[in-house]
């Protein structure tokens, strides 16, 4: 088992014939993902060749779903077309839609969330996607830096996800989810905590947060009320100045709200141990699980 994505997931790629789409479809296939279709408006009927595997291209998500039974979509289309692409996936209907695209307007993110409510789980936008190592990868998380295991990982940041997956590669992950660094995202820390808590294949959870908003504070309250599995956390951005956006659109301290310290305090107040560095966070998890450093 895993959360959201398993070996049985049938993945289609929206924007597969673009440069990024092509490159990452090849990587997903190499990671063992069952990529069953590509969608590019106006290019239906073609086939995209990925060495050993030829993937059919459809002109619409509805056609792709009808022909292949796809149940996951990974979206690589440019920001101005993202809302329309997600609308199509929701209407198809696709139960899981992973939006990799960076730079999606916030109004579009709010709208696509509203459109998808109760029908499609959206992950992202501006996220690296998710991977259940050894089973499937939907997005751009590198598959060769980790192994299959029983740690659940959820993060706003791509590279910090990779860093922690790598540091914990001997233990391995059930699923790692990059939820994205935008102010409005489809799937939150809490959604992932809930899914990991319910997943019998996950023993412990690593939660990575960063400055901006109060998602980590809310997640802390959720952990206190609903999570019995061990959770360790890391928060980035203690040195970020007030009022400056630090790379991710959502990573901004506004006045006294959204600071790393406030998030760390909220997590520690409910018994979640918070590492000062990614390495220390990995070490904390080992301590919690009674494992030694390899």
């Amino acid at each position: 088992m895993a959360i959201f994505l398993t070996k049985d997931s049938r993945v289609l790629v929206q924007g597969m014939t673009g440069a990024e789409g092509t490159r990452h479809t090849a990587r997903m296939l190499a990671a063992g993902t069952d990529v069953v279709a590509g969608v590019t408006p106006g290019k239906g009927g073609r086939t995209a060749d990925f060495g050993e595997r030829a993937v059919p291209v459809f002109g619409s998500v509805a056609d792709a779903v009808a022909a292949t039974g796809a149940d996951v979509s990974v979206v690589f289309v440019p920001p101005r077309f993202t809302l329309a692409a997600v609308e199509e996936a929701v209407a198809a209907p696709i139960p899981l839609c992973v939006v990799i695209t960076e730079g999606v307007p916030v109004h579009d993110a709010v709208r696509l969330r509203a459109l998808a409510a109760g029908r499609t789980r959206i992950i992202g936008p501006n996220c690296p996607g998710l991977i259940s190592p050894g089973q499937s990868s939907a997005g751009i998380i590198p598959a060769d830096i980790t192994s299959s295991g029983r740690i659940g990982l959820v993060s706003k940041s791509g590279t910090l996800t990779y860093q922690l997956m790598y540091e914990l590669r001997d233990l391995g992950c059930s699923t790692a989810v990059g939820i994205g660094g935008d102010p409005v995202v489809g799937t939150t820390h809490i959604d992932c905590l809930q899914a990991f808590q319910d997943d019998p294949a996950t023993d412990a959870i690593v939660m990575i947060g960063e400055i901006g908003g109060d998602a980590e504070e809310r997640a802390a309250a959720y952990v206190a009320a609903h999570v019995t599995k061990p959770v360790v956390a890391y928060v980035a951005g203690f040195t970020a100045p007030e009022g400056r956006t630090m790379g991710h659109a959502g990573a901004i301290v506004s006045g006294s709200s959204g600071t790393a310290q406030a998030k760390k305090n909220a997590l520690e107040a409910v018994g979640v141990r918070v590492g000062r560095t990614p390495s220390e966070t990995a070490a904390l998890l080992r301590t919690v699980l009674g494992k030694t450093t390899p």
Partner: peptide, 17 residues
Amino acid sequence: VGNGAGLVMSTLDVVAG
């Protein structure tokens, strides 16, 4: 300098540490 906003923020913190 680093790759990825989260990792760079984290690096700033580790430098401060």
